[in-house]
Design a binder for these strands. Structure first.
Lengths: 144, 144
DNA sequence: CTTGACCTTAGAGTTAACTCTAAGCTTATA
DNA sequence: TATAAGCTTAGAGTTAACTCTAAGGTCAAG
């Protein structure tokens, strides 16, 4: 049985974060000392490591709560439930990447159009594009 | 001179958002009626459109505040200041894309490894990977 | 027995960009 | 003149995942 700071060292989570996860139902200490100190078993450590691994892949705490409930009783959950959660997360990630790539293209076009030199900004083409009220990417070309 | 809802229609911003931007110094009504109603001039509209354009490219409100102060006196700011802001934003976007692509690869690997079928999750390879406490991407291969 | 490191709790603060609410005033229309 | 639509303000709520604070209890070492 180890204390919260040791669990923190093993998992790379801070004691604060561990307590925060506990409040959200992700991690629990299987024992408490008389004084109320949390004590974690090997199984608790594995659960915490699971949470950490899922978190660092990008799953939300809600996703992880679902994965943990599957983990607790694998025989009554299907592989498909797990892939559904994973695929849903991948969809979110793909969508966000697409948004960011639109920004990326806009920003690259802005930079390409502008000298970036020390002359004053009176004729700065970035400013001009923004003044025109149009994004450099969505300006034109939305129709095939 | 137009009222806030009309400015909203012209720019695609809600009146709420326009007031919010005002509180943050981005937009101002050049006049108020006796009753305190905001009235916007053509120049105000152009400024609001500038904000909207910058926002939809992905600039933060802080970035936009900087761009607006350049816009107000272009002769005392250089092109380079504008490109610096833009490049900095592009760096952020690139960094975020890279993070998301790492998640994307992890999630794709998880999905590839798993049947996703209706059988129970006892031997689900996604669960196994997470149990192992390692991300499928950073597992190995960080050293050339 | 004191010092210092560590633990406890409840609850507040952080970040960004909105978004909404409440309570009341104004204005245009029927 | 009544009604509805729209405007005002200050301020609270939303989201996610922490992160920190305050005030105090515990424990091992010297």
């Amino acid at each position: 049985m180890i204390k919260i700071s040791e669990l923190g060292e093993k998992t790379g989570l801070s004691p604060h974060t561990i307590r925060f996860y506990e409040k959200h139902g992700l991690i629990e200490a299987s024992q408490r000392s008389e004084a109320g100190y949390r004590f974690y078993s090997e199984a608790d450590v594995r659960r915490a490591e699971f949470v950490k691994a899922a978190r660092s892949i990008g799953f939300s705490l809600d996703d992880i709560a679902q994965l943990l409930s599957i983990r607790l009783d694998k025989t009554s959950h299907s592989c498909q439930e797990v892939t559904d959660i994973t695929r849903h997360k991948l969809d979110e990630v793909n969508e966000r990447i697409a948004e960011l790539q639109t920004m990326q293209r806009s920003l690259q076009l802005l930079l390409k159009s502008c000298s970036g030199g020390p002359e004053n900004a009176t004729h700065c083409s970035i400013m001009e594009t923004l003044e025109a009220g149009s994004s450099p990417v969505t300006e034109r070309g939305d129709e095939s």
